[in-house]
Design a protein around this nucleic acid. Structure first.
Length: 489
RNA sequence: GCGGGUAUAGCUCAAUGGUAGAGCCCUGGCCUUCCAAGCCAGAAAUGCGGGUUCGAUUCCCGCUACCCGCUCCA
């Protein structure tokens, strides 16, 4: 295998060569932080999404308590708009967190908040404030906004300003009452969503890892405060196992619990699921998913207004007039617990995963270079994507060994049958070995070949991508064979 | 945002102040009874914009993108 720093280039090169990922707007020179998925990439990405949706939402049994948990829970999905009422982001805290007027020092490269210049220090002369030291060379205050701004309505004026969402989560919180009122759910329950989000990354980097337009798979899990710690641990462990079940190895994948000092001001527990991406320095990991215990921060924010910490308490931040600086909706988002006859504000566990980051991790993990003996027994190099069959863009390929003696006709029949249910390739071009290699680079887990014996006894060979071992099975067993191996996990 | 590097075909690389080559890949054909065989034919490139020059892919400037290191970060 290539060196670590080279591995990423090989993966990026394969992505381009085989049509997984392209730079966005490439014919115009590209645009930083944006990427396109090609014919294989879009299949892989849909498979990542669908595996998540199937495992978290569709396939969830809401009548049976998970092992060791006190109760069953419900899970429903939503798909909410990308542009939301601007007040959402003010109440949620994103507006302040992502939006600052900043001043840079051209000399010492330090960056300061414009509103804090008076209380900041010049890094080179701590006794003076920025701008007061002789070498200081400050820029004018510049607007620094990690949220994409847009305008709702054709008229461009400040009144119509809105933002592209920097996370999908707020759409679940703003629909908390709607879901409660319509989905016949009770605590505990989760709301799931997959969708695009946008952040103006300062430094887009590492291929698609840090993109400005990206896709999230998020769950907001609402539960009783007394059970929240238990559910936090449930989700943390369950989400970790999900990545393992789709092929990320124990060595490169890790679960990291945040230390106290690392926690957000509202969180009482956060864990990251991290992957040792090949572009990172040895020993460093990049986040795939964060599982955060968010307490009642979000629902309270949307009731009362933007919250700030005062000592151990979260209180509504007030403006000069004593009123909430960024008011919430004023709507009651509390929950009446029929079991305990209590009214409470549910606590929230948030497993928030990146689709593109997961995909990139699956791709990096799957990439392998090995050697397969040729007809003379001499090892020949091969590039193969050992993707989990559930994720593989093409599930199987069907080949006629030769383009004669009735083989193409039989192979086409098989192809057409399989094609009704799965993304399957038919290929009769070039030598059989070449065709196997093509599929290896695309990550196709199985190849079925129609040969002379097929015509005689109705069996085909199945060739396994990872081992290259072949076995014969009846043609009638091909669909059940695939069905079994592509089963949901 | 700062500094350094890079930019030639889908990929990996050559070359040149004067017609830009190759290997792989890809397409069509021939051949071929299981792991990148062979033969024939074909498609395909100097990131973008300026400048110098008779002529720039080559030299200079700017921009963009990517990589590396800082900075920043959810």
């Amino acid at each position: 295998m290539p060196e670590k720093n080279e591995l990423m280039e090989r993966v990026a090169s394969l992505s381009k060569r085989r049509g997984f990922i392209f730079p966005s707007s490439e014919i115009y020179g590209g645009i930083g932080g944006f990427w396109d998925y090609g014919p294989l990439g879009v299949e892989l990405k849909r498979n990542v999404r669908e595996a998540w949706w199937q495992d978290m939402v569709r396939g969830h049994d809401d009548t049976t308590p998970p092992p060791g948990m006190p109760s069953p829970y419900a899970m429903v999905g939503v798909e909410t708009s990308i542009v939301m009422h601007p007040q959402v982001w003010k109440a949620s805290g994103h507006y302040d967190l992502f939006h600052d007027m900043l001043v840079d020092c051209r000399h010492c490269k330090a960056r300061f908040r414009a509103d804090q210049l008076a209380t900041s220090q010049c890094p080179e002369k701590p006794s003076k404030r920025p701008g007061e030291h002789t070498t200081c060379d400050l820029t004018e205050p510049r607007e620094f906004n990690l949220m994409f701004k847009t305008y709702v309505g054709a008229l461009v004026d400040p009144e119509s300003e809105a933002y592209l969402r920097p996370e999908t989560a707020q759409g679940m919180f703003t629909n908390f009452k709607n879901v409660l009122a319509t989905a016949r759910v009770k605590l505990p329950f989760g709301i799931a969503q997959i969708g695009k989000s946008f952040r103006n990354e300062i430094t887009p980097r590492y291929f698609t890892y840090r993109s400005r337009e990206f896709e999230q798979m998020e769950i907001e899990f609402f539960c009783r405060p007394v059970e929240s710690r238990l559910w936090y641990e449930y989700w943390r462990d369950r989400r970790f196992r999900w990545y393992v079940s789709l092929g990320l190895s124990g060595e490169r994948l890790r679960l990291r619990e945040h230390g106290r000092e690392e926690l957000s001001h509202y969180s009482c527990g956060t864990a990251d699921i991290e992957y040792a991406f090949p572009f990172l320095p040895a020993g460093e990991f990049g986040e795939l998913e964060g599982i955060a215990h968010r307490g009642d921060f979000d629902l309270r924010s949307h009731m009362e207004g933007k919250l700030v910490r005062r000592g151990e308490e979260l209180v509504v931040e007030t403006g000069p007039d004593g009123k909430p600086r960024y008011p919430g909706s004023g709507k009651d988002l509390s929950y009446f617990d029929e079991e305990t006859k209590e009214r409470l504000i549910p606590h929230v566990i948030e497993p928030s995963a990146g689709v593109d980051r997961s995909l990139l991790a699956f791709l990096c993990e799957a990439y392998a270079e090995d050697a397969i003996p040729d007809e003379n027994g001499i090892p020949q190099p091969r590039v193969v994507l050992k993707l989990h069959p559930r994720l593989a863009p093409i599930k199987a390929a069907v080949f006629p060994l030769l383009r004669k003696e009735g083989m193409p006709e039989v192979a086409l029949d098989l192809y057409r049958e399989l094609r009704k249910r799965w993304n399957v390739d038919y290929d009769d071009r070039g030598s059989i070995g070449r065709r196997y290699r093509r599929q290896d680079e695309s990550g196709t887990p199985f190849c079925f070949t129609v040969d002379g014996q097929t015509i005689a006894d109705g069996t085909v060979t199945v060739r396994d991508r990872d081992t290259t071992v072949q076995e014969r099975i009846p043609m009638t067993a091909v669909a059940p064979f695939l069905q079994e191996r592509l089963a949901t996990g």
